Simulated scan of single mutants.
Amino acid sequence: MNQGGQVLWWLAAVVLVKWLLVIERVLYLLITYPKQQQGWLRQWQARADQTSWHARVQREGWLSEARIALSQNLNLIKVLVAICPMLGLLGTVTGMISVFDVMSTQGSSQPKLMASGISLATLPTMAGMVAALAGMFVHARLAKVCHWRELKLEKLLRSQ
């Protein structure tokens, strides 16, 4: 962390928040949502009238509730994923500025000094890209699972 500069700490904070939100979504999908789904199905099956306009509106209301609950925090995760490479790039730019500052004071005749400085300056970019790639895959998977769950609930409510 010291080699990559202060921006790596900001990147670490963004990555931590992103993974906490991912864990929250996974726990919701595994624990809370199945209970909610069973509740909606029980309420639907308990209705004597399932074909009237009021019944259809109630079903659409439950589907809307499910859609909102399933997609909660997905956009925030997506934004945090998009921020990761930008923070990495910011770290690289600030690192390169410090390399140029050292070069201006000590001269540019020492290639070893320049190479090590440039190497340290690119660490934040690599960290930002790794964090963004991992986040992209997880976000895409979560979005797909949420969409599948929503479609499954709609199918279950319509087939009753």
Rank of each mutant, 00 (worst) to 15 (best):
G4A: 14
G5V: 04
Q6K: 13
V7L: 10
A12I: 02
V15M: 07
V17R: 00
V17D: 02
L20I: 06
V22P: 04
V22M: 04
E24I: 02
E24L: 09
R25E: 05
V26S: 08
L27G: 07
Y28C: 07
L29E: 01
L30D: 08
L30H: 03
P34R: 05
Q36V: 07
Q36P: 00
Q37I: 00
Q38R: 14
G39K: 09
W40A: 11
R42E: 15
Q43Y: 05
Q43N: 12
Q45N: 10
D49I: 07
Q50M: 01
T51A: 11
H54Q: 15
A55Y: 09
R56F: 10
V57F: 01
R59P: 02
E60T: 09
W62T: 11
S64Q: 14
E65A: 14
A69D: 07
Q72Y: 08
Q72P: 00
L76N: 04
I77H: 02
K78T: 09
K78F: 06
V81T: 10
A82R: 02
A82Q: 09
P85R: 05
P85C: 09
V93G: 05
V93I: 13
G95L: 02
M96H: 00
I97Y: 07
V99N: 06
S104A: 11
G107H: 01
S108N: 05
A115Q: 07
G117E: 01
A121N: 05
T122K: 00
T122D: 00
P124N: 06
P124G: 07
P124K: 05
M126L: 11
M126R: 03
M126V: 14
A127F: 01
G128R: 03
G128I: 02
A134P: 00
A134T: 13
M136Y: 14
F137H: 12
A143N: 13
C146S: 13
H147N: 13
W148Q: 14
R149D: 10
R149Y: 03
R149T: 03
R149C: 06
E150L: 15
L151G: 15
L153G: 06
Q160C: 14
